[in-house]
Nucleic acid binder design. Sequence first.
DNA 1: ATGTTAGTTTAGAATTATTACAAATTACCC
DNA 2: GGGTAATTTGTAATAATTCTAAACTAACAT
Lengths: 140, 140
Amino acid sequence: MSYTEDAQTRLRRAGLRLTTPRIVIYEYLLSHRTHPTCDQIYNGIRESNPGISLASVYNVTEKLADEKLLIKIVAPDGERHYDSITEFHGHFFCLACKKIFDLNCTPDLKMEELKGAKTTDILLSARGYCPECVRKGHAD
Amino acid sequence: MSYTEDAQTRLRRAGLRLTTPRIVIYEYLLSHRTHPTCDQIYNGIRESNPGISLASVYNVTEKLADEKLLIKIVAPDGERHYDSITEFHGHFFCLACKKIFDLNCTPDLKMEELKGAKTTDILLSARGYCPECVRKGHAD
DNA sequence: ATGTTAGTTTAGAATTATTACAAATTACCC
DNA sequence: GGGTAATTTGTAATAATTCTAAACTAACAT
């Protein structure tokens, strides 16, 4: 019977101090699987927590990513997004509706040329038009 | 007997006007497989072509990428790099020496969840420590 | 409970990368 | 060679992220 831990439990287990910005931002990311940017997180928590600064969103997300509680994903256009699902998966970025979709794929790097390298993380991003946007004729 | 076309031929074939910035920048990218950023290209051509502006490097690389003469690759830290090899391949970014290595892999997106989507391009980036840096003890 | 302290947050300034703009220039077609 | 639309240039503007120093606070020890 598995039980999804809440933000506070996860933070505590990672040995992090429980501060309001960390709890609020992490809870936001755990409950919104939209892969938001720092700015989007900031705007998403603003009404309920006007005291949390944008700088803290940057600080907290970076810290949580360092501690592997989040992953940072970089879109093909360079925007940085955060995701609370830390197991490897790819992402599909729709050029029309701008939504980001998870891809349940496993990467095969074929690193024969780089024998002996030590890989820390992998980013797999595809870009294009999602099925709904294709249907609506938004693909070109 | 295949013969690698020069920058001018490729530009002409793509229907682009032959301008000095385009020729110089494209030649630079064809002969330097270091995956440079716009700023690195600008500094690389500066001595020989002091008249070419940084704005032109941005304009030209974007235009050539639109015309599929180059690909734009986004590093896991968000930096934008350009590569004159346009066939799909992945990249490995060494965290220690900052070099970028090509990976001859093919992606397998497993897009069952996104049946009907139209994919325009794929970015596969791994991060870690290259064999030489591992050997030198730069990995952590 | 209270004090101490190191870690964290805040607001704003600074930095950096990229884009926008308008004037000057230039490649290409005739 | 001349006309014209595309391109380049230099600079200004924008946007995203990082830096900084002062204020605050969670966690621990008392």
